[in-house]
Write a protein that binds this DNA or RNA. Structure first.
Lengths: 205, 205
DNA sequence: CCTACCGATCGGTAGG
DNA sequence: CCTACCGATCGGTAGG
């Protein structure tokens, strides 16, 4: 009982540190964010940080891996469901929207500061990202093969698709001006059907 | 004559410094890139750098503004030409491909490290980016109005379009595996006509 | 372009 | 969780 309470206190303080650190690392970059800045934001002395985190690298790794795991769990759940091609694309877009809206600071740290990870952390991070891209590349390649997606290089389609969603990570950090449902609807249309306005008839196989 | 030669020497040494600095700032981040790293890459002592650049911020500003000006000049030239909507989109995609291929290191510094600019440099940079986005937003809004582009939020279309091209900045830094023409062709198709495979008939107005 | 140097700040530790 | 502290490194300057 006492242990449980202590753990709760311990975890929430650590989470508090990670949350403040994410905001500071996002705005100042990993190398430009000092442990003094982070301690000041949390409201304790620098040396006290080390009761909750092992090192500055530990902070970065925790932020990057928690976001990475959410992406992978979300994608695995979508791809193993029985949805058609367009529904899966819509679900993946929804995943990116909801993660961007939920993790305003740490999402950008995940995107831009992972390169400061070292040794085992760096290679583990690269493995996770490679897994995510490999799963999605398989999805694109299968559906091009099956005739559901336009003939194209699966790699170019993958890179363009993933890249096209990155503005979401910046969009929500000010204040969400538009509803997430509206954004999803427009994104699905633009990415699935294209920017150019034309009449369309689906091929009946 | 003597002055011309001195200026040439001066400029090429400065350019050499900026080139090495771009590579170091890209991999280590602005705050993580030390003047000693840069001096070492150039092959001179730290103090000698200051004969060619005013400060570390001067290096960052030079890199960011030279890329920014190339984007703006390129876009202005395209939008003032007499091309139809699809041709202009194709030309803008070509602009982003050729700039990404020409400036492997400094393009990523431009994208990710501009936030370390200060005071006047920061506000000038924000103005340039706002100008680029405003010009492109006008293009999207006009062509949605005219019925050439799909009904959509011009902002969402703009963000998605610009974001979808950002993978190019990473793609060329290893070694260009695919020809730029092939990439452009696939990008135009995916962005103009969408990922989903369907027959299309253009509306005859 | 170099030698020599400076005050400030860095991540982290000892010890309580 | 704090006080006190350390060696390393930082951007930049003086002077030649």
């Amino acid at each position: 009982m006492t242990i449980d309470i202590m753990k709760t206190v311990e975890f929430s303080r650590r989470d508090h540190i990670l949350k403040e650190a994410a905001g500071i690392i996002r705005t100042q970059g990993y190398a430009g964010a000092s442990m003094r800045d982070i301690a000041n934001a949390v409201g304790i002395e620098v040396s006290s940080l080390y009761n909750h985190i092992k090192s500055k690298h530990d902070i970065l790794a925790s932020i990057c891996f928690s976001i990475g795991e959410e992406y992978i769990q979300g994608l695995d759940a979508i791809l193993s469901n029985t949805l058609d091609c367009r529904q899966k694309i819509e679900a993946i877009i929804s995943l990116h929207i909801s993660l961007a809206a939920a993790h305003k600071d740490s999402m950008q740290v995940f995107e831009e500061e992972w390169k400061h990870l070292r040794d085992d952390d760096l290679s583990r991070f690269r493995s996770m990202r490679a897994y995510y891209e490999r799963q999605l590349l398989g999805f694109f390649a299968e559906n091009i093969q099956a005739g559901h997606l336009r003939e194209s290089s699966p790699e170019i389609a993958l890179y363009t698709f993933l890249s096209s969603l990155k503005w979401l990570n910046f969009y929500f950090k000010d204040n969400k001006k538009k509803n997430a449902d509206i954004i999803r609807h427009h994104l699905v249309q633009i990415l699935c059907d294209g920017l150019i306005k034309e009449t369309k008839r689906t091929i009946v196989s």
